[in-house]
């Protein structure tokens, strides 16, 4: 029982850790793309990668100040969005999906190729770019803090303080945009592009603005991830993360301001909780009603996979019993069925 409580505590800790911030920002961007505008961006992780590497390359390779790295990262995300959007946004939705998924993978392979190692560090990665970020921390970076029974390093606390502040600001921005006529046009584009065109809306421009803004959110997520991990390696940016972020978005409820945030937190709770709960189950002498020992059935290496099986099952059940996600409006989702 005590082990289960520990696992729960670790789960709660993971809800607030920088990984959750990372996914929350990825999912906020996807929410803007997919939830509000109907754009199928399957390469959100590419925006995170250019964001994170924007800082890492600027600071570690070019010796530029940290804030310049932030600007470089955001600028790179804007350029990437324009490059992806210009040829595809006039076409059907599928084309953006194809181009984004392909370029996310292509960018990762480019960054890890030997030829680009002088800039990106290739597979050996980049380090030592976040010291000026931590020098701004008002408390001791190396200190240990106990908050409600969870332990945090001072540096972690600084990253998540900034991270959750950005999430809060992003949510406020999305909220302000979505209650405005601008947001109304985005939702109209999601429902029917031709109808929006017939009403005099420049659909292409709106889709482009949405793609750029959502991409910038993704880049901010990548930056938080970069300062959180303290090292950059292209393989951190596997495209599976895009789909996990989609999972978080759908879990929380698409086209809801707080949906992606709730979803990302819950996703990380499930991952961390099931991880430590399963580990405790396997390592102890726990049996299944005296029939067999859990330790005989599962090894500790299986756990990493099983927790994703649990997430998959959870998503399936969610789609069956609550297709609108946690915060969604069931009436709205059911309209699609016709």
């Amino acid at each position: 029982m005590g082990e289960l409580l520990d696992a729960f505590q670790l789960g709660v800790r993971a809800m607030f850790a920088y990984q959750a911030v990372f996914f929350a920002l990825l999912a906020i961007g996807l929410n803007l793309h997919f939830g509000y505008t109907g754009l199928l961006n399957f390469g959100q992780i590419a925006f995170a990668m250019v964001g994170g590497y924007g800082i890492a390359i600027s600071v570690a390779q070019w010796d530029l100040p940290f804030w310049v790295g932030v600007v470089v990262g955001l600028g790179a995300a804007v350029i990437l969005a324009l490059l992806l959007g210009l040829p595809t946004l006039r076409l059907r939705a599928d084309y953006l999906a194809i181009v984004t998924i392909a370029s996310a993978e292509a960018l990762r392979l480019l960054f890890r190729s030997v030829g680009s190692s002088e800039i990106t560090g290739s597979t050996s990665g980049l380090f030592d770019y976040n010291s000026s970020f931590f020098s701004l921390c008002p408390w001791s970076v190396s200190g240990r803090f106990d908050i409600l029974g969870t332990r945090w390093r001072g540096s972690e606390l600084w990253v998540i303080t900034i991270g959750w502040s950005i999430v809060l600001l992003a949510c406020l921005l999305v909220w302000a945009l979505m209650r405005s006529p601008w947001g109304r046009v985005l939702r109209a584009v999601r429902e029917d592009e031709d109808a929006a065109r017939a009403l005099g809306k420049n659909v292409y421009a709106f889709k482009m603005q949405s793609l750029v803004l959502g991409g910038v959110f993704g880049a901010l997520g990548g930056m938080i991830y970069a300062v959180g991990t303290g090292s950059q390696n292209p393989d951190q940016y596997q495209n599976a993360n895009t789909f996990l972020a989609y999972g978080a978005l759908i879990l929380g409820g698409a086209a809801r301001v707080l949906g992606p945030v709730i979803g990302a937190m819950l996703l990380w709770f499930i991952i961390a909780f099931s991880d430590s709960a399963l580990a405790a189950l396997v390592s102890g002498d726990n049996s299944f009603f005296g029939l067999f020992e859990w330790g005989d059935l599962l090894s500790t290496t299986d756990i990493a996979y099983i927790r994703f099986i649990i997430i998959g099952l959870g998503l399936m059940l969610l789609m069956i019993f609550r297709p609108q996600g946690i915060l969604g409006d069931r009436r709205e989702v059911m309209l699609d069925a016709r």
Binding site: P181, R184, V185, R187, A188, R190, E191, D192, D194, A195, A196, A198, L199, G200, K201, E332, L335, D336
Partner: peptide, 17 residues
């Protein structure tokens, strides 16, 4: 082409120039 997941009033407001 009614914009299904917008309310009737939002549909109308969208038409304004």
């Amino acid at each position: 082409k009614a914009l299904s997941r917008l309310t009737v009033l939002q549909n109308m407001l969208l038409g304004a120039k």
